[in-house]
């Protein structure tokens, strides 16, 4: 059996009185591609944001690549170096060019020479098919292009795990495909562990090894995409699927 790269053991989290995550147990194998879906407010984003500690969990254990997330800053830094993240609103750095956005992490965190960082950046810009935008500023790009830059920025850190937090939700409909194509390409290449919060069910069917359904802070159901879509067990899953698959 392949060793798990991410383990969540009875993770609980509260925002004040509000119980956002309830006893989350999840084991992700190396190279596994997981799609997380569920109604809004169900804790999907919070769960994946706990994995690189943009959010703090209050109970339970999160172990990423053999390192447990605690208050230890060293551990947090080590884990963040392994984990890339793509945000709903891109969060590119608007005062830096596309190329500088891509080389910032490699230069300051991985301590790479500039020329090497730039070569890597251009490699990934080619991969997301916008090398010609390297010297532009994020504000000059379309939403779809910005999100592709954001994906390339994460890839430049050479992560073992990629987290996607609703990467296509803020995009105009005609730009969703260009971003999904990049993500599909990444998934089909293999090797990368991916956890993706998304409502793009076509994407889930195409590349996911497992689909997880969350509601009210709990994991309700998880299954292979085929089983999940054709034969949902829980009635909340059935209701959710009937609402989004029309």
């Amino acid at each position: 059996m392949v060793a798990p790269i991410i383990e969540l053991q009875t993770v609980n989290k509260w925002y004040g009185e509000f119980h956002v995550l309830r006893n989350i147990n999840l084991t992700v194998k190396k190279g596994e591609r997981i799609v997380v879906c569920g109604p809004s407010g169900s804790g999907k984003s919070t769960m994946i944001r706990c994995i690189n500690r943009l959010e703090e969990h209050q109970k339970g254990h999160i172990i990423v690549d053999g390192t447990e997330l605690t208050n230890d800053l060293k551990n947090i830094d080590a884990i963040r170096r392994e984990v890339g993240m793509v945000f709903q609103h891109f969060n590119l750095f608007p005062h830096l060019t596309v190329l500088e956005n891509l080389t910032l992490g490699p230069i300051w965190v991985l301590k790479k020479p500039k020329a090497e960082a730039e070569a890597t950046a251009m490699k990934y810009l080619n991969r997301v098919r916008i090398p010609e935008q390297a010297s532009k500023y994020p504000g000059q790009l379309s939403g779809g292009q910005q999100q592709r830059v954001a994906i390339a920025r994460s890839l430049c850190m050479n992560p073992k795990i990629m987290l996607f937090d609703e990467p296509t939700s803020a995009l105009d409909p005609e730009m969703v495909k260009e971003v999904l194509d990049v993500m599909v390409g990444l998934a089909e290449e293999g090797g990368m562990t991916m956890i993706c919060v998304t409502h793009e069910m076509g994407f889930a069917r195409k590349v996911a090894d497992r689909v997880i359904f969350m509601d009210r802070g709990e994991i309700i159901e998880q299954n292979t995409p085929n089983e999940f879509f054709s034969n949902p067990q829980n009635e909340r899953t059935q209701l959710f699927l009937s609402q989004i698959l029309h």
Binding site: N52, R80, M85, H89, N91, L104, W108, V109, A150, R153
Partner: peptide, 27 residues
């Protein structure tokens, strides 16, 4: 400065002071 900038910088592994110096203060 949008809080997303802090999050993106943290996700890249930048420390708080690096984030302040390289990302937040310039903006």
């Amino acid at each position: 400065v949008n809080y997303g900038q802090w999050e993106a910088a943290s996700a890249l592994g930048l420390t708080r002071s690096q984030t302040l110096r390289l990302i937040v203060l310039p903006q």
